[in-house]
Design a protein around this nucleic acid. Structure first.
Lengths: 196, 196
DNA sequence: AGACGATACGGAACAGCGTTCCGGATTGTC
DNA sequence: GACAATCCGGAACGCTGTTCCGTATCGTCT
């Protein structure tokens, strides 16, 4: 295998207009997402980018792909923050708390993202799955550290916890009386081993 | 005001076919809801009832109204169970736990209901609001009792708690790895005052 | 430079949804 | 039996996401 890839047919490089349109779409999507939420109509994004509908589907499988492309970097950043917090914070539990807080901030500040994560729409479920795939291992690491330190009750599943935290964020935009942070803090408090 | 209502014009009673169709719709809706979930297409319910689309909208403002009509009774039952549990259970906290468990059972056993409660669809938000209007006072009562008994930390908002519990139920159907009950127990554990 | 094939674009077209609307059928009353 | 009030059915509208293909553009090779 002296070739760069196994049995790779000599593919031509992508055309410049394609690359340009992809960038236009990412910019437009980011702009529309903050203005109208991540569930904004596809046509709105196409219009904002000055591009046809077909062009969107050429570059992204569906809106979920677009959302992942737009916010993927921030998810990555959040994931990487896990290890760093574990090193910086005074205790694993503190690290866990800080990390959860950071994740919640990320989700809450994106219009409609929290609701999208809780949606039963198949597309949005893929979105949730993608986020979780990246973040659950980090959460698991933090949980394990806190467990080893004897700070939290063992046997808590990272996937379930992440999923629950995401769920608790649902609906925060359309309801002044509901602040997810309260309950999330309460939930994490429920993890703690009482210091007797 | 010897009349039954203030300035009530002498309204004729509803026609028998109207009453019959309403019943047919309720039956059909209940059947379709368990088969296809509460977010089943309106047309499906109309077909099941052997009725036109207009007939649905004549009797119910939208699908939300239909859901409320179908499940309203069970919500009522759940609400009434609050006081009873408070009398039966050994302690207010036990009553709260049992009541929450009962509520979660209700939500979880209805196809798509949990997801509907977490939906950002305006119609479904009205549904959530209706459920909460009826149940929040009950939850508040239970919370207050547990607070007075010194069993839980004070200052927990019943509305927020109910909303959070509803949210935690979201997505349980489409995800084997996620069991809302775990987190809900954990959450309520977070309420508890550590017995030191 | 010119031409030709690969690639990408645009938007019409389709399917499915909730909701509205009104001509016509049904019902209760006089 | 006749006449209103009431109610029904389903076509039609507007809004979704998604697919599809004729056309335009780009990169390369002569």
């Amino acid at each position: 295998m002296t070739e760069r890839d196994t049995a790779a047919p000599p593919r031509r490089a992508r055309r410049v207009d394609a690359r340009r349109n992809e960038q236009k779409l990412l910019d437009a999507a980011a702009s529309v997402f903050v203005a109208s939420g991540v569930d904004a109509p596809i046509r709105e994004i196409a219009a904002e980018a000055g591009v046809g509908l077909g062009t969107i589907y050429r570059h992204f499988p569906d809106r979920t792909g677009l959302v992942i492309a737009v916010y993927g970097h921030q998810v990555e950043t959040c994931a990487e923050a896990g290890r760093q917090l574990l090193a910086e914070e005074p205790s694993p539990l503190d690290a866990l708390l800080a990390w959860v807080e950071r994740f919640v901030d990320f989700v809450i500040t994106k219009h409609g993202l929290a609701d999208a994560l809780g949606s039963d729409d198949p597309g949005f479920q893929r979105l949730h799955a993608h986020f979780l795939d990246r973040l659950v291992p980090v959460c698991a690491e933090l949980l394990a550290a806190a467990e080893d330190a004897g700070q939290i009750t063992p046997g808590v599943d990272a996937y379930e916890l992440m999923r629950g935290i995401g769920n608790l964020c649902v609906g925060h935009e359309s309801d002044d009386r509901y602040d997810p942070r309260h309950l999330i803090r309460l939930l994490v408090r429920g993890l703690r081993i009482a210091e007797s």
